[in-house]
Write a protein that binds this DNA or RNA. Structure first.
Length: 682
DNA sequence: TTATAGCTTTTTTTT
DNA sequence: AAAGCTATAA
């Protein structure tokens, strides 16, 4: 295997060649962080380390996918066989599947997503007669999550001076955990906590994984939380080959429990650690870097480093003000339209970044209006749509009959004549008999109407039959066929056409989405990389869906276009041109950070701004609106304090300067469509 | 029990 | 503006 290391600078090379013991690479934005990790993996493999002994961890699925691909480029697809590149959560999940008994779980547990977690909390509120209008289920869930991550059991949860919230949290926490156990489900926190506990309590398991993963690499280390740190601690000792890469200036996940101290104190925790700093930026122009340096310099508590570049100054950073979000969006769309028209940039080279997901709406509308292709990252994904979740809930009950959350979702959808009252009666009766809700279906001894009774018995038979068929099926096509038969027997078609009798297009789209599940399962089961799992294909498929959502079809040219993404989602990515929209007080910095307990600490918001700026390679626009719709009402807004902090590093522009006339735009749009038609051969 | 009209609430950020 | 929830009627 040939590996050209001459493309690396001195510091990068040092990190790539480092062999034994812990290492910390402090890498500024655009300084070749991912390059260091990928080359280091390739270098280890070249020097005889077996790929299966290497573990690389990232934070997002997208980052993991990209890293897998880049390593593949260096060592070939065959060369990386056995290599583990995954997110912390996916790693924890894999370990749980491999050693479910050590973690006290059945092998076919399911994963609760956020919606199901909140649903569970709300259900408990009703059970114990807590007024869910007075108490916020989300807040309680957040408190439970905090306790879980701190390793505090429900009975040890504090009750400081009879505060209502702590009281309710304690009670709900205990029941929440009992529910998960009963239904054989885990939440996102458990995916990390349970493997850590299993490793702590089973030395032989720990020994196994330590032997397997001899070289560990962690990307975005500044965003690790205590549980993730403990997992690393279990996987290697203080002198282990743990190489972490990160940038404290890009720490933006404190809200999720991440602690920058992990990276700042790395040298103390691992005294033998080698420390390397990367400060040369290979991404952005001088002006963009100047602005980035200016904004981050306002943060007090940080590891001082200044990025530099040998690139030229480049174009000025433009700051623009608009009357409302629609005008702002129109400017973005106009600018993109003319740039692409003039052949300066392709749609794929451009991204629009914002603080919160709702901000994508006006942008989407403006882009649609001008016929600009785009793709929204995050937001309402395929697997979050109602009809898809309904259909998946059926599969989840087929896979895990204990999953009461899913069963409740589908027990009366399509309608079987079982309402709230009847359902609760059944649950109560089931508790009395010590029988699960699923088992109650077969013989609903609670007094429900005869018709309902029959429907429930039918449902039980259908689910059971499908379970049998899925268990014996081996070919992917066969699995998919059984799923299709299940959906047919449920008769989603009639239900959805009735629901949407006034909108047949929407109905057809929903049915297509449901059909897509069978297809996705078939494709998933065909993938040989997934075939290795010891559990059933359906179990692994459902887990993957909860963990990763839809497989991204990035290679699909039709799906590419301008990228719309949150700043959080954009971390680690880059584009030649970037629009940073909504540079307003209460948005960036966000209202919650200004109002929150540690009032006025906007340093994390500032880092977020820094991350946004440093995504741009050549050109950057920053904009804000002086009025914006909130809950349907227009509210006055003021520009972000961060713009003032940027001072002379950015240039204020006259708003109307590049606005296009409607005629110009129509001509451009016509031209674009003509080109597309020609390209597609119409 | 189910459908629906009318009321209330909602906006961080992600695995 | 849109989604979620409740009270009410059928």
């Amino acid at each position: 295997m040939k590996l050209d290391l001459s493309v690396l600078n001195r510091e990068q090379l040092e990190a790539v060649l480092h062999q034994e013991g812990p290492a910390l690479v402090l890498a500024g934005a655009g300084s070749g962080k991912t390059r260091v990790i990928t080359y280091r993996i390739a270098r280890l493999i070249r020097d005889g380390v077996k790929p299966e002994n290497v573990l690389a961890v990232t934070f997002t699925n997208k980052a993991a996918a990209e890293m897998r691909e880049r390593v593949g480029h260096l060592v070939g697809r065959g060369g990386r066989k056995g290599l583990t590149v995954s997110t912390f959560h996916a790693l924890g999940h894999k370990m749980l599947r491999e050693c479910s008994d050590a973690a006290g779980l059945m092998p076919r547990f399911s994963i609760f997503d956020q919606g199901e977690q909140i649903g569970t909390v709300k259900r408990i509120f009703r059970e114990v007669k807590i007024d869910d209008r007075r108490f916020d289920a989300k807040k309680v869930l957040a408190a439970i999550s905090r306790l879980k991550n701190l390793g505090i059991a429900p009975d040890k949860a504090p009750l400081n001076d009879g505060d209502d919230y702590t009281l309710i949290t304690k009670e709900t926490y205990a029941r929440y955990e009992a529910t998960l156990r009963r239904e054989q489900c885990v939440d996102f926190d458990d995916l990390l906590i349970k493997p850590v506990r299993a490793l702590q309590n089973h030395p032989e398991l720990r020994a196994y994984y330590r032997k397997k993963f001899q070289y560990l690499l962690v990307d975005e280390y500044q965003d690790t939380n205590p549980i993730q740190f403990q997992l690393l601690e279990q996987l290697c000792d203080r002198t282990g080959n743990l190489c972490v890469v990160g940038d404290d200036d890009q720490a933006i996940y404190a809200f999720r429990g991440a602690d920058v101290e992990h990276i700042l104190g790395f040298g103390k925790t691992f005294p033998s650690a080698k420390q390397i700093a990367l400060t040369q930026n290979y991404r952005s122009t001088g002006r963009i870097l100047g602005a980035a340096n200016a904004i981050i310099a306002k943060n007090e508590k940080r590891n001082h480093k200044k990025l530099w570049t040998s690139f030229g100054e480049g174009d000025p950073i433009e700051v623009r003000s608009f009357d409302d979000a629609e005008q702002e969006a129109k400017f973005v769309a106009d600018t993109i339209l003319s740039a692409v028209h003039e052949g300066k940039r392709k749609h794929e080279d451009i991204a629009v970044l914002y603080r919160s997901n709702v901000q994508s709406q006006p942008i989407e509308e403006a882009l649609r209006l001008e016929g600009i292709p785009y793709r929204v990252v995050g937001g309402m994904e395929y697997f979050e749509r109602k009809e898809v979740k309904d259909a998946l809930a059926y599969l989840r009950v087929v896979d895990n009959p204990n999953d009461e959350m899913s069963l409740r979702r589908i027990i009366n959808y399509p309608a079987r004549g079982l309402g709230e009252v009847g359902l609760e009666k059944m649950v109560a009766k089931g508790k009395e008999l010590g029988v699960s809700l699923y088992e109650m279906l077969a013989d609903p001894v609670a007094d429900v109407k005869a018709k309902t009774r029959d429907a429930l018995i039918n449902l039980h038979a259908l689910l059971g039959a499908t379970r049998m068929k899925m268990a014996t099926a081996s070919a992917p096509a066969e699995l998919a066929r059984h799923v299709r038969e299940l959906f047919e027997a449920i008769d989603f078609e009639t239900t959805i056409y009735e629901e949407l009798a006034d909108n047949l297009t929407a109905a057809a789209r929903k049915l297509e989405n449901i059909a897509g599940i069978a297809l996705a399962l078939e494709r998933f089961a065909q993938d040989p990389e997934e075939g290795a799992a010891s559990t059933s294909p359906l179990t692994t498929f459902l887990s993957q869906v909860s963990l990763e959502g839809e497989e991204s079809d990035d290679k699909d040219d039709d799906k590419r276009g301008v990228t719309l993404i949150t700043i959080h989602g954009a971390k680690g990515l880059e584009w030649p041109w970037v629009f940073l929209v909504g540079m307003e007080e209460e948005l960036l910095p966000h209202r919650r950070s200004v109002e929150s307990v540690d009032a006025g600490d906007v340093s994390e918001e500032r880092r977020l701004c820094y991350v946004g700026i440093t995504r741009a390679r050549e050109r950057l626009w920053m904009s804000f609106a002086t009025g914006r719709r909130r809950y349907g009402k227009v509210v006055p807004r003021t520009e972000s304090r961060f713009l003032a902090e940027l001072g002379e590093t950015v240039q204020r522009m006259n708003t109307s300067a590049t606005s296009l006339s409607d005629e110009q735009k129509d001509a451009m749009a016509d031209d674009f469509f003509a080109k597309m038609r020609a390209k597609l051969g119409y």
